[in-house]
């Protein structure tokens, strides 16, 4: 376990709402080793995005509150870091892209402005970047010029043609797929260790989706990235990821290499999930087909949150939260069918 880049342990996150406390994350366990491309899947509202946003500490608190757990990055617990140093951490170690490339770029600034800032502020030793008003200083101009050639290089890396020209455009002059490439370039500007991608292709049409996923895959090889890829789509997982973690109502209930998960799903929820994928095709992953409703987060079921819907429910499922049970090497399930340590 010592080589884990990211190790989330027993993470609990709550939100104060008007109806009561929503227990959004209730013990998330997730491990990424260097070089992993891990897919995080689960129904809508199960806490995938919250898990992702908890890592760079981007959840506003209040109303959010982390009540327990650790987020170990290279062995250091990010939750213990002073808030003020998180910006530096994000700049140096983290890249993040989101679902809708249209709303994630600032509409009022050119690609150059945004990309050059990304390059400048993610450099290890840059504390303050001279703004436009000090731009006449030769040193500042030199700095921006260097950052700009790096920006153009990054645009080439993510496959934007005519980068020297297009860098002067505004986001609305780019197509959706190209905008997502720009955002990837911005995320990669500081040569991060970890790229978190929260449904990066959901807002794009199918052919563009495939291109973006192929790009991410190729960047993993070129740059030695580690990727946490959040998706609804089991097809995306099958094509893009090496490992997969399945979430259900605020917990990871199974983590395994992609092959193992598809061939020997251990958790009854995962089994339902795999069965729900139309046979003969892995390109569309539906998460329907499991009877019952998604649990309420304010008053969730005790014990295993899946037990009211579980076809193989045991007596103690309703009272005890299951711990990790090893199924194979690298394959864990959090289910009483697989007792801890077995």
């Amino acid at each position: 376990m010592s080589e884990a880049l990211l190790d989330i342990q027993d993470l609990h996150l709550e939100f104060d709402t008007f109806d009561g406390v929503a227990k959004v994350l209730a013990g998330v366990n997730l491990t990424l080793e260097r070089g992993d491309v891990l897919g995080l899947v689960g129904e809508t509202g199960c806490g995938k995005s919250m898990t992702a946003l908890a890592i760079p500490r981007l959840i506003s608190m209040p109303p959010g509150r982390i009540t327990n757990g650790q987020i170990l990055f290279n062995g250091e617990d990010l939750l213990q870091r002073p808030t003020g140093s998180m910006q530096q951490f994000r700049a140096r170690h983290l890249g993040m892209i989101f679902q809708d490339p249209t709303t994630n770029l600032n509409p009022l600034f050119t690609i150059r402005e945004q990309l050059v800032d990304a390059v400048l502020y993610q450099q290890a030793n840059v504390k303050s970047v001279p703004g436009r008003w000090r731009g006449f200083l030769p040193s500042a101009r030199q700095m921006r010029k260097e950052a700009q050639s790096r920006a153009i290089e990054l645009m080439g890396l993510v496959g934007i043609p005519d980068a020297e020209l297009r860098i002067n455009d505004y986001p609305h002059q780019f197509s959706g797929g190209m905008r997502q490439r720009v955002l990837i370039a911005m995320a990669l500007a500081g040569e991060p260790d970890l790229l978190i991608a929260d449904e990066p292709t959901t807002a794009l049409d199918v052919t563009i989706q495939a291109q973006i996923l192929r790009l991410i895959r190729s960047l993993v090889h070129q740059l030695g990235l580690t990727v946490l890829l959040i998706t609804h789509n089991l097809g995306v997982v099958a094509n893009t990821c090496d490992k997969v973690a399945v979430m259900y109502s605020g917990r990871v209930i199974e983590q395994a290499p992609v092959r193992d998960l598809f061939h020997q799903p251990a958790h009854p929820y995962t089994q339902g999930l795999i069965r729900a994928v139309p046979s003969g095709s892995t390109s569309r992953g539906g998460l329907q087909g499991i009877p019952g409703l998604i649990p309420n987060l304010i008053d969730p079921p005790q014990g295993c949150r899946f037990h009211p819907r579980c076809p193989q429910v045991l007596e103690h499922c309703a009272s005890q939260v299951p711990g990790p049970g090893a199924i194979g090497s690298d394959h864990l399930a959090f289910c009483h069918l697989y007792p801890e340590g077995a």
Partner: peptide, 26 residues
Amino acid sequence: ERDFVRSARAIGIPERVVIGKYVLRN
């Protein structure tokens, strides 16, 4: 509350730039 603010923060743009440059102009 806009997405691009979260995006800028997520990649490590300092808060003073996020607010004073990106948010303020909008």
